Amino acid sequence: MGHMKGGRQSLRKRMQRGFTMVEVIVAIGMLTLVGLAAAQFAITAVHSSYAHQQRSIAVGLAESGMEQVQESVKGKDGNTIFSTLTSGMAKSQAQEALKTASDLNVIENAADTIDLGWSDTPSATAIQAKVETTDQQGKGTTYTVYTVVGKCYRLSTQASCLSAAKQGLVTTAGAVGSFKYVGQGNTAVEAASITDPTKFPTGPFNTGTAASQTYSPMVRVVVLVTWPDSQHQGKTCWYSTATILDGSNDDTLKTK
């Protein structure tokens, strides 16, 4: 009997040791899961922090770009704003900037809202349509700053500023209607000032009749900053700011 008692005690001890091992394994598993969750949380937090930092840099670049735009036309006559802002913009880069803004829906229905402008002899010292800059303090993110400048026309009875074609100034065949400047001795408006991407009307105009509505030429400016999405491979992040400048008045800045 003594032998059997000793056998039961030995079995009980082995079972106790077995349960202890299971508990240890379960505990290790739980700790591992908690550790993995904590690590994932930390990684997500780091990525979110970096994404926030990237956006902050982009916002700063966009605001700086718009400040440069407004400083460059400060004190200028309204009808020279367009030529000043497009003086550094090559055609190819201006078109790329507009396409990028359109593809990202930064500018919706571009054909209806803007007639793109550029210079045939762009200056290297003026505002450029496309500039790339790299963040030297972070992970070397490359930001692309696009500046889109174009013409649009605002009717005296409307708030929206639309392209020449959308306003009916140009026919589908490309012909420009007959218009005269208001307050300039009924001087005729050159068709090129409406159709040429390098030219701009010198002031408000209408058809010359008493009942005609007046079209005010405006300058639409969009500053767009793009950068690679650090959290989603192959995707692009962006931030933009925009303004509309009165192209016929030297002291009016109208922001949209």
Rank of each mutant, 00 (worst) to 15 (best):
E96M: 08
G168P: 03
F19D: 06
Q136H: 04
T125A: 15
N105H: 13
D120F: 05
D135M: 08
A175M: 04
T144G: 07
S178R: 10
M15R: 15
E132Y: 10
V223H: 01
W238I: 03
A110F: 03
Q213T: 05
G140L: 03
M21K: 12
T255Q: 10
H3T: 14
K166E: 07
K180Q: 12
T172C: 08
A126H: 06
P204S: 06
V170P: 04
H52I: 03
G88W: 01
R17N: 15
T226V: 12
A210G: 05
S216Y: 09
S92H: 08
K254V: 15
K151I: 00
H232R: 13
E190N: 14
F205I: 09
G140N: 00
S92F: 05
L245V: 02
A211D: 06
S156W: 04
C152K: 08
R220H: 05
G18D: 10
N79D: 11
A38L: 13
G203E: 03
T134L: 08
Q70G: 10
V69S: 04
M4S: 12
F19S: 14
D229V: 10
E108D: 12
L33K: 11
T195M: 08
L31M: 15
A211P: 00
S83L: 06
G78M: 02
M66T: 01
E67H: 11
E190I: 09
Y153L: 01
